[in-house]
């Protein structure tokens, strides 16, 4: 069989499968990443990067099974490297992020603001543990597989994330 013909067929299949992944996961991943980095534009860029990697991987190996877990792992790694590179972003006050129109009016509940403030104070690994379990719906075991750690470590990170959120809630009540 002609090599170019095979390659074109692979491309079409990869594209179709990547489109399926985009349809199913784009909203979930973008919301997860927006919470991780606190910025909608950056979240969109990172989401796009995740799907691009998935597409390249499928084009190279059409038989490869890419699950939601793979996408979340890639998204988490992307967010963590972004936050490490741009530590200064964590020092920006939250209100400025919210003022930029990243969050719609009806999303801007006190709970949402409290959660984002708490996430902004946490190391990215703890944010990821809380969001993968409570936001994305993975169990501590599954989240541990995605983060390359143990279930107990995930539970401990969730506990610490919860403590940060409690502190933010208390501060809100005292203001």
């Amino acid at each position: 069989m002609d090599e170019a013909f095979v390659s074109a067929g692979n491309d079409a299949r990869a594209q179709a499968r990547a489109e399926g992944l985009v349809r199913e996961y784009q909203t979930k991943l973008a919301r997860y990443l927006r919470r991780m980095v606190g910025d909608a534009d950056v979240a969109l860029d990172l989401t796009q990067e995740v799907f691009l990697s998935a597409y390249r991987m499928l084009r190279a190996d059409p038989q490869r099974q890419l699950t939601g877990g793979w996408l979340y792992r890639a998204a988490t790694n992307g967010a963590i490297s972004f936050l490490r590179r741009k530590k200064i972003l964590r020092m920006l006050p939250l209100e400025r992020e919210l003022d930029r129109g990243d969050w719609r009016v009806d999303e801007r509940t006190a709970a949402s603001v409290d959660l984002q403030t708490a996430l902004g104070r946490l190391p990215p690994e703890q944010s990821a543990a809380l969001l993968l379990t409570s936001y994305a719906g993975y169990s501590s075991y599954e989240a541990a597989q995605l983060l390359g750690t143990t279930s107990d470590a995930v539970r401990q990170r969730v506990c610490r994330a919860m403590r940060a959120l409690r502190t933010v809630m208390k501060e809100g009540m005292e203001r």
Binding site: Q15, Y55, S112, L165
Partner: peptide, 25 residues
């Protein structure tokens, strides 16, 4: 109580971005 706040924040999410298919980037 604290986890209810997380759930409330999650339920308040309305953002539904539409990305282009990867090959069209």
């Amino acid at each position: 109580r604290v986890m209810a706040v997380v759930a409330e924040a999650r339920n308040a999410e309305r953002w539904e971005p539409r990305l282009r298919a990867p090959a069209q980037n």
